[in-house]
């Protein structure tokens, strides 16, 4: 197994674990934990392809690390906004349980 395949498999597993957390958790903050895992899986892909993927291709701009750099910045912003929204919901319902947010339920 090449290192590239190993890292891509790790990324697949991490993404699926994050997806599983998003689907099964009830607490909104723990759903955000799953989203962070999924974002990390995507970042590992970028690094793996940058490190091992290109066979002798010159890459002066370092596209892979650059993507990860921007992705980390955007993930931090996403976490900040997500947690602020969750805190606002908590102030309304006194709970972070997503099953309680059923006022649009028909």
């Amino acid at each position: 197994m090449t290192p590239l395949a190993l890292l891509l498999t790790l990324s697949c597993v991490l993404f699926t674990l994050g997806l599983f957390a998003v689907l099964t958790r009830r607490n909104a903050i723990l759903i955000l934990v799953g989203v962070e895992l999924m974002l990390n899986a995507a970042n590992i892909n970028f690094i793996a392809f940058w490190r091992y993927g290109q066979a002798g291709v010159e890459d002066p701009n370092m596209i892979g690390p650059m993507f990860v750099l921007f992705s980390i910045a955007i993930a931090a912003a996403e976490a900040a906004v997500g947690l602020a929204i969750i805190l606002m919901v908590f102030r309304h319902t006194r709970s972070t349980d997503l099953n309680r947010l059923d006022s649009l339920h028909g």
Binding site: L4, A5, A55, D59
Partner: peptide, 12 residues
């Protein structure tokens, strides 16, 4: 990936 060999000649 598994089908063909990925060359690891020059890691960045």
């Amino acid at each position: 990936i598994g089908s063909d060999e990925v060359s690891e000649s020059s890691p960045s």
